[in-house]
Amino acid sequence: MHMKLQEAIDEAFDQALHELAACRSAEALIWLERAHILTQRRPWLHARSHWLMLRAGWQQGDMREVLGQVPRILAALLFSRIWVPVGNTGRARVSAFQPMPVTEDLQALLASERQQRVPEA
C-alpha cells in the first residue's frame, strides 16, 4: 500500500478512536467517514470503519446508525473487492449504494495508490 495512503488511514482510525474514548462520537464519525472512503477496497479495514461507526452510533444512542451498520459490516467483508460506491461515507443515513463526491485530498491519496498498482508499459 502506498505510504501516504497508509498514514492517512492510520491517522483517521487513531483520531476516531481518540474521539470515541473521549465520548465525542460526532467528531469520531467525521474521521470514520474519511477512513471508510480510504478503505473501501480493503475488506477488513472497510469492515472496521463500519464497526467503529456502530460503536459511535451506540455511544450517541442512535439506533438507526447502530442497526444500519450491521448489514454494512457484512457487506464490507463480502463485497469490498467486487464493487463499492466510490466516495460513499458509510453512514446509515445515506444509501449504501450511493456514490458520492470525493474530496480532492482523498482523491489524491486514492489516485497515488492506483498508479502504484498499474504496471508501466
Rank of each mutant, 00 (worst) to 15 (best):
A75C: 02
I37W: 03
G57V: 10
R48A: 03
P101C: 04
L67R: 12
A76V: 07
E33I: 01
P101F: 05
G68K: 03
P101H: 07
E65K: 04
M53A: 03
A35S: 15
W83P: 00
G68S: 08
I82V: 08
Q40I: 02
M63A: 08
I82S: 07
W44G: 10
L20G: 09
W44K: 10
Q59Y: 07
T39F: 03
R34I: 00
E27F: 06
P101N: 08
R42F: 11
S25R: 14
L45D: 10
R24K: 09
A75K: 01
A47P: 03
T89D: 02
W31G: 15
R93W: 02
Q40N: 15
A92P: 07
A76F: 01
N88Y: 14
R93D: 00
Q98L: 12
E33F: 05
P99N: 06
E65L: 14
W58H: 10
G87N: 09
L78Y: 07
P85T: 09
A28R: 00
E33C: 09
Q69T: 05
A76K: 06
M100W: 12
R81P: 08
V94L: 10
R93P: 00
L77C: 05
H18N: 10
A47R: 02
L67I: 05
T89K: 01
H50C: 02
H18S: 10
R91Q: 15
C23D: 12
R93I: 02
P71F: 04
A21C: 08
G87H: 02
E19H: 12
R91F: 08
I37A: 01
L32V: 00
G57Y: 13
H50L: 01
R72C: 01
H46Q: 13
M63P: 12
L77Y: 15
T89N: 06
A47Q: 01
V94G: 13
W31R: 14
C23W: 11
S95W: 06
H18L: 07
W31C: 15
Q59W: 13
A75T: 00
R34E: 00
W51C: 13
L45Y: 11
A96Y: 08
L77F: 10
R55E: 12
L78D: 03
A92D: 04
R41L: 15
A75N: 03
E33Q: 13
I30M: 13
A75D: 00
W44Q: 14
A16Q: 04
I73N: 02
A47G: 06
S95R: 06
L38W: 08
A21T: 09
